[in-house]
Design a protein around this nucleic acid. Sequence first.
DNA 1: CGTCGCGTTGACAACCATTCTCACCTTAGT
DNA 2: ACTAAGGTGAGAATGGTTGTCAACGCGACG
Lengths: 131, 131
Amino acid sequence: MQRMTRQRAAVVEVLADSEEFRTAQELHDMVRGQGHSVGLATVYRTMQAMVSAGEVDVLRNAEGEAMYRRCERTEHHHHLLCRDCGRTEEIDAALVEQWAESVGRAHRFSNIEHTAELFGTCADCAADEDS
Amino acid sequence: MQRMTRQRAAVVEVLADSEEFRTAQELHDMVRGQGHSVGLATVYRTMQAMVSAGEVDVLRNAEGEAMYRRCERTEHHHHLLCRDCGRTEEIDAALVEQWAESVGRAHRFSNIEHTAELFGTCADCAADEDS
DNA sequence: CGTCGCGTTGACAACCATTCTCACCTTAGT
DNA sequence: ACTAAGGTGAGAATGGTTGTCAACGCGACG
């Protein structure tokens, strides 16, 4: 049974308000910034639960830290992140899915999974750099 | 200046003999298993150097640990890993490169980088599971 | 409403990959 | 060989993440 606790509600709310991928530590800070008191371990536990429930996406940044984000669409999709401001665009890429499948088949691998993320500099940040 | 030391040679050799992606710790064990004495920190340092020299590929496994591998081709490419035996196939995917570029352009992101790895069960391991 | 069972929590320790420190060692150029 | 500068190792430090366990609080049920 999954209970709705004060802490979980606080974490979910912060996550819902955030457009971008956040580390567990950032979420923790944000929750505390809103006056709630929530333990770091609880943030991690909540994220694990939501990830395995498919309600949240995880990805690892270049340093290997886990980052979480509540996505609009629940189906499988990919992301395009701005490496400066963290802005995130969701991308569905039937092309990549097909590619993964066909490459797997060509090498006689079964049960194919894949990761694919894009990183770049968004138009706004590129403009800022010029100035 | 880059010097060739006993330790570095040992690490490079082990890496050359290995077809699969290995964590720094695994490489360390393998080197010591061959009778050489090399510090773990040195393995990490050597890997960093080789990665930034483009001689070695890194990727992060699901747990976020860095894994290293010496690849045949030096150009940018992707991998298909067997999640059971670790076997690795190199894949060049012009398709994915184009996809990354065009998606980036469509969202007006510049300086696009991407990650894309495939995981599956190879034919041999699939056969083993049946038995 | 009150009780009770069990999922949940939090403070803190434990873990573990990775990096840093720093005194000592080795390579490479001459 | 001589020496400067890069390289090394043991261990400590770092930092993200997970485990521990007693105390807590949802919510089902009466």
